[in-house]
Amino acid sequence: MSKAQTHGQLASAISTEVMIEVNKMNKWYGSFHVLKDIDLTVHKGERIVVCGPSGSGKSTLIRCINALEEHQEGDIIVDGIKLGKNLKNLDHIRTEVGMVFQNFNLFPHLTILENLTLGPIWVRKMAKADAIETAMMYLERVKIPEQANKYPGQMSGGQQQRVAIARSLCMGPKIMLFDEPTSALDPEMIKEVLDTMVDLAETGMTMIVVTHEMGFAKTIADEVIFMDEGDIVERNKPEEFFSHPEHERTQKFLSQIL
């Protein structure tokens, strides 16, 4: 049984400080309207789980928050900085917001340790020895310090994903975004990644997680968001969300997935 399922609801420490604010945000891919009038406020320490059918725009939403995708209308304000064309802001945002991808996106030509120290050394201008120390600390935390000198291709999917989480943490982000982190993993490896994420949630990190792992959502989420066709259809506390889904579309989705 996964830690995520046995743990019970985590206590959370949400402050009133706003980390992410999205106002009336719209995005199109060509003529296709992907995100429609999205409003979203995330406070410091808050943990949000986003779910919904594929093509509903949930990945696009968090990619917009990390400025990997451009939005066309409305505002996204991350840690007090408004996203826009300003490249300097962009680089700043990306160092504050960590992101974990479905396909890990580790750098296959570098060792695990080099993957982890690259950002701190080149972007944060940290001394090499300090960067290695930080990297080893986070590798301990994701429980694979002995793999430091291997290459990503020599590790299992679950291990790679934990390295990817550690790589983001090495930059000292204030917010962590997860884009379906367990979807590309074998069932046996999902648990180890979810446990790592639960550990991270316990430290009070602000997190937005796109996932279909409902057990995980019940454990760590302060709120669950359900998206469909570019709209945020429903947003609620997890216990309410799972026991009394309001919207018909949510009910249908949950009946198929649970």
Partner: peptide, 16 residues
């Protein structure tokens, strides 16, 4: 494409 995105998320710019 994921490689460039991975690099962007740790704050590397174009040349990096």
């Amino acid at each position: 494409k994921g490689q460039a995105e991975g690099a962007h998320t740790i704050g590397l710019g174009y040349w990096g």
